[in-house]
């Protein structure tokens, strides 16, 4: 079951950029690619805790601003030789409105 919460609009996020959503389980980074796809991942690099929302976005990937680890926005997996992953959160769009599935957030909070 999904529980969709509206978090904002596409125009709130710069193309090839990100914005943050503050939640009870911590900060979630919401990305917008050059082709206007949106993705949400936890805003914390598993390497040294870098804020991924601050990285450079290329394709459907982001490079961490602290030590240049690259993550897939879609799977959350570290790319290249690095090993690690961040949590991803489902988003859906209705026109320019963006919604996030809160069920995962609840599940994490319950852990």
């Amino acid at each position: 079951m999904s529980d969709w919460i509206e978090i904002g609009r596409l125009d709130d996020i710069p193309q090839r950029g990100a914005r943050c959503v503050n939640t009870p389980i911590g900060r979630i980074a919401v990305f917008r690619t050059a082709t206007d796809d949106v993705y949400a991942i936890e805003d914390r690099c598993p390497h040294r805790g870098g804020p991924l929302s601050q990285g450079i976005v290329h394709g459907a990937e982001v490079t961490c601003p602290l030590h240049n680890w690259v993550f897939s926005l879609e799977t959350g997996l570290a790319q290249g030789a690095d090993e690690g992953a961040v949590r991803t959160f489902a988003l859906k769009r209705d026109g320019s409105r963006i919604f996030m599935d809160a069920t995962m957030m609840m599940a994490i909070a319950a852990e």
Binding site: D3, I5, I7, G8, D12, I13, P14, R19, C20, V21, N22, T23, P24, R27, V30, M100, A102, M105, M106, A109
Partner: peptide
């Protein structure tokens, strides 16, 4: 401005 503000603040639904 967008750089310095979160896009949204969520509580538990």
């Amino acid at each position: 401005k967008h750089e310095f503000k979160p896009m949204a603040e969520l509580g538990f639904p």
